[in-house]
Write a protein that binds this DNA or RNA. Structure first.
Lengths: 252, 252
DNA sequence: GTTAGAACTTGACGCTACGTCAATGTCAAG
DNA sequence: CTTGACATTGACGTAGCGTCAAGTTCTAAC
């Protein structure tokens, strides 16, 4: 007793196309192919098909299902491995949801969503090679320890202050005042305090020469558009650079 | 001031292939194409690229990002819609995880994972058309009410008893005893009690003729392989059918 | 001036699990 | 004999690029 491809598809709650697909993958061969080329499936094939569909509903990939059916992998073992992957996906989704939520909040608050990129410039995992090349391996390791040492709350505060600073720099640059004037110098003071205010900040690390570091940082804001963007583009970054240089020359 | 495709790719933390891909999708065109065909990107392009990458990290599709960038859709609006989809995905994953976990437990308990398919045969949503055709519309509606009325716990118990019955039927059929003998008749009695034991069971519905219903059910186990599978295939189902017929003839 | 090597270009296939035509052949019923 | 239902193989499309492949151009060394 066997059935045509449509019949078995309805019995199992799937489509004939799927059955052909499984056929060419080697997952489920027809039990018989008639002289006219029509596929026919018997009861054993139905049972196998039901197992396939059950595993597929659990989210297993077809190759993994194939291994289970061929006995290459224990069913429980394959499912346990799959469970790990599912949990990872769930966590990834949870993180994404959290990110989207905070982003929406920021947008509703009228912010310009700049902190992410600003922070990316310092991200220890993403730009490790580049950071090491720019500031040296020791500086990277020290910066990494420093960042981790901040903890959740500290990191959050650091980023919040970075955002506030960025907005104020942009406003100052657009207002047309001089970088060496009182507004620019006040901002430069805040900027240096932001960099050095937290104990262990990398500002103090590369040689301990804070003055050279601050000046170099200003140059970098101009040279590296990833930072420049946070200060309103190249022109804004030039304003920051000039203000920092003037401040460093006078005060540091 | 602009940069080559490789430079901008490194600056933004992506690859040149991705940039070309965005180019042909119309998401991000090079700001300039030199006489030699090389792509070049300026600062505005970099900012746009960073927005694209940020939205992409949040899980938005490239077409949706395109709409946001073209101003066709508000950023917050697009993200809110996306958030709904993310939450749905998360729930789907949660259900899948739960299913995989219970499946693993069953496997470790040595069960044969039959309950799913057995239940599928009665699933009100999946096989509604077929059930209506086989038993009539009223029977379907009644069965649906009955099943919902059981509640979580009741449904679980009903399925557990179905599984236990299936195992015992298979064992009896394989032991070689007669369907009309004491073992077969004892099982038939349990089977009917299982069907009718819960108030409102559909067994009593289709006309109230329990005897005809039980006999018809036995035939269906043989005729419909989806049920037969739960009793060890066609041969097992034939054993069940014969035992049920004998029991119905004698006792009902 | 030449030449090796790096960087650039435009195709085009591959991956998941099928859905969806397209063109054509087969079978049962009227 | 025709019609309609059902079968076949073949091939494209999906999301977002990774990854060759084959050919051109730039750069720096010799």
């Amino acid at each position: 007793m066997d059935w045509s491809i449509q019949e078995i598809a309805k019995l199992a709650g799937t489509t004939s196309r799927t059955l052909r697909h499984y056929g060419e993958l080697g997952l489920l061969a027809p039990s018989r192919i008639a002289a006219n080329g029509y596929r026919h499936y018997d009861e054993r094939a139905l049972v196998r098909l039901q197992r396939i569909l059950l595993l597929r509903e659990l989210g297993l990939g077809l190759p993994a299902i194939g291994e289970v059916l061929e006995g290459d992998a224990g069913e429980a073992h394959a499912l346990a491995a799959h469970l790990g992957w599912l949990r990872q996906e769930q966590q990834r989704l949870a993180r994404q949801i959290a990110s989207v939520e905070t982003t929406i909040e920021k947008l509703e608050g009228g912010e310009r969503l700049m902190a992410e990129e600003m922070f990316d410039g310092f991200d220890h995992t993403k730009y490790q090679d580049e950071v090491e090349e720019r500031w040296g391996k020791d500086a990277y390791a020290a910066g990494d320890r420093w960042w981790r040492g901040l903890g959740e709350a500290g990191q959050h505060e650091w980023k919040a202050r970075a955002e506030a600073l960025g907005r104020d720099w942009i406003a100052a640059a657009e207002s047309g005042v001089e970088p060496g004037g009182p507004e620019g110098q006040a901002l430069a003071k805040r900027h240096v305090e932001w960099l050095t205010g937290i104990p262990g900040t990398p500002a103090a690390k590369p040689g301990g020469d804070v003055k050279a570091y601050v000046i170099g940082l200003g140059e970098m804001y101009v040279a590296d558009p990833r930072f420049g963007v946070n200060y309103g583009g190249t022109e804004g970054a030039e304003f920051v650079r000039d203000a920092l240089r003037a401040y460093a020359d006078r005060e540091l």
